[in-house]
Design a binder for these strands. Structure first.
Lengths: 345, 345
DNA sequence: TTGTAGGCGTTATCAT
DNA sequence: ATGATAACGCCTACAA
């Protein structure tokens, strides 16, 4: 039988009273119980259980200045956000790592440009201890914001502005070895005896796209512009790019697409145009996106990156600096890629 | 030139001092400025601007007992969570509505069964004012939790337990008219002269699946079990189910799939088996999922539901009860569906 | 090892 | 219309 519950939810005060100790001791037990006699620890824990006590988060945050929450900012205005399995997996990785560290995930979806004011207010309002952000485009206002308000932030994917002056200061990010992965893919195609290897690139305002293009060019140093078409990382964009390429170079015998979604779009066009894959045209994608690469027909040979692992890493990097509490920049990590051979090349 | 900033972020105290008013007045201005002389309002606002003041969220929550945040709980342990466009759109709708009401979205991903302890602690800890939850299976422990701790909650999709005794008390949810939509789809197939109409059902532990099956049966009251196969709402599952159906009833001339993803899976199998769509077999899906229904070949005739709108509605329902602050149950809403005619039937 | 007491930044209840 | 002042629930020196 529960005692009569005193109005609202029980406070530490109530727990202390019930256990016959002071608030301070009760607090110690709640926070690990270091230096409290076992006997009292038990008593307090019993009281906690009986009363169904749960610490009040706001009160705790007020004094500790730690919220135990991290913002995940997704600044992709378009549909891609969730429909691209890339994000899902990265978020999942982040979620796992945060959960394992008792940290909450606050999702901030940026719908339009005006949302950045809201985001800044939110970040500055002390709702979260740090931020994780994705797929920044070159002119994204977010880095300036996080810097101004001194919010520790880790980016997913190398930000595009690092090429310019270091006006944004040091930045930390987690990114796959896009350039190296692309090189490996193209070298493989070359090794297979392919001679006219085209590239379907992603949008040029994202480093993942430009890095992969650079990797392609590293190997094919004199590939003409006719062999390169720009897509937008969607299947439809990949189809459009493939159509262009075939019109320009009907004789091409291989395609390296900057992601799997575009590769599947290309696959459809190749089939329509009567090209067999990999017979007439070899096709390599990038991401090893689940439910995309494997289920394609034929299954996609692709460059795998450990997306979920990258998500975990982002979270870990951020949490580490939050613990150190010294305002140091988290640092960056480049994760390796690997070529997965399937049926398409 | 900013004055020397006093250590950390400026407090209301600092604003008041600078504006030459009391904390109380400053607070009034921050919260709308009702009943404060315009002259003072200006002064305080100037101080706020000059100091870059942002209210401390924890302090405010501590006294108002309102967090301005809502949890979105996704209890789908599998990949589907984000890769199914259904969730993306509903979350987007939720996000928009919450944002418009200055409310934050805290994402709670349930990875495994043990996570519910963590969820309960979180919900009970006063981090959020209410919760939004999705796609509950019949034995989901969440409703019991939210009820026990008195957390206002709106469900996406009719919960499965409402058939049993009302042990969970009144529940509020937003759901599409799954049964009615299914009826319309099947009636349409009948009107087109189809005689052997099969159904690819979703998993039977979700009401969206059972309701659609019920709608199918409403029209085809004597459809034998041979015409029904159970999928899992994924494309691969749809393909498996289609294979079964064709093996059992090679002569079937129409299929109603419980969602678009399964319909596309079925489409692939039909093509492989040499059936033309809609010539030999008419196919109708459900959802009108973007990037799925329209881009299928042929484009899918399907039952549309306003998914984003349902998300907004969930958020609106929840916010309304939170405002009323009277612990009343939000109530439920069934949203209409409509048949969208495209190429597949 | 335990308790006392002060303060975190805000809102809300009173007087004035 | 404005200003003291008391909560809100917790942590943490500091004292005992």
């Amino acid at each position: 039988m529960a005692e009569q519950l005193p109005a609202g939810r029980p406070t530490l005060e109530a727990v202390a009273a019930r256990a016959g100790v002071s608030r301070a001791t009760a607090s110690r037990v709640v926070n690990g119980g270091e230096g409290v006699r076992p006997r009292l620890v038990d008593k307090v824990q019993a009281a906690i259980r009986e009363l169904g006590y749960v610490p009040n988060h706001a009160a705790r945050t007020l004094v500790t200045r730690r919220t135990g929450a991290v913002a995940v900012i997704i600044a992709e205005p378009e549909i891609r956000i969730f429909s691209d399995p890339f994000f899902s997996r990265q978020i999942r990785g982040i979620s796992k790592e945060l959960t394992a560290n008792d940290t909450q995930l606050v999702l901030l979806l940026v719908e339009d440009r005006g949302d950045y004011d809201r985001i800044e207010r939110y970040l500055a309002g002390g709702h979260v201890d740090g931020a994780l952000a994705f797929s920044l485009h070159t002119d994204d206002p977010l880095p300036a914001i996080t810097r101004r308000i001194g919010m520790p932030t880790v980016y997913g994917g190398r930000p595009g502005w690092t090429g310019g002056a270091g006006e944004h200061g040091p930045v930390s990010y987690v990114d796959a070895d896009n350039r190296g992965g692309a090189r490996e893919a193209v070298r493989y195609l070359v090794a297979q005896g392919r001679r006219q290897i085209a590239h379907i690139a992603g949008p040029m305002d994202q480093t993942s796209a430009t890095d992969r293009l650079d990797g392609y060019r590293d190997v094919l140093i004199d590939a003409g512009p006719a062999l390169i078409a720009e897509g937008d990382f969607t299947a439809a964009g990949g189809a459009r790019a493939m159509t262009e390429l075939l019109d320009r170079r009907p004789g091409l015998d291989a395609v390296f697409a900057a992601n799997d979604l575009m590769a599947t779009g290309a696959l459809g066009v190749l089939r329509e145009r009567g090209r067999s894959v990999p017979g007439d045209v070899a096709l390599v994608g990038f991401d090893d996106a689940e439910l995309v690469a494997e289920t394609a027909d034929p299954p996609l040979t692709t460059v795998r990156q450990d997306i979920e692992g990258m998500g975990r890493l982002m979270a870990r990097l951020l949490l580490r600096t939050l613990d150190k509490e010294q305002g140091g920049v988290p640092g960056s990590v480049i994760t390796p890629t690997s070529l997965v051979l399937r049926g398409s090349a």
